[in-house]
């Protein structure tokens, strides 16, 4: 997993709506670094530097569905 030098921050927002055109990733598909990030951000109002593995709008299945938002 690479850290993009964009200065953008990533957060995870719980979601129940998964549109058909969404890229959905399961926790087990992610690199160890991205898994750490998901564990730390899931369900918490925190942010982390954007990663090269998760894009804005992606959904991650962990203990719930979380939508990736970057800004």
């Amino acid at each position: 997993m690479s850290i993009r030098e964009t200065g953008r921050r990533l957060r995870l927002r719980r979601t129940g709506l998964i549109p058909p055109d969404t890229r959905v990733r399961h926790y087990d598909e992610l690199s160890e670094e991205a898994q750490v990030l998901v564990r730390e951000l899931a369900g918490r109002p925190e942010t982390a530097p954007e990663t090269g593995e998760l894009d804005d709008g992606d959904v991650v299945k962990f203990t719930d569905y979380y939508q990736v938002r970057t800004r």
Partner: peptide
């Protein structure tokens, strides 16, 4: 029943 077919 949590996911539609397409993202799979």
């Amino acid at each position: 029943g949590k996911l539609p077919e397409a993202p799979i």
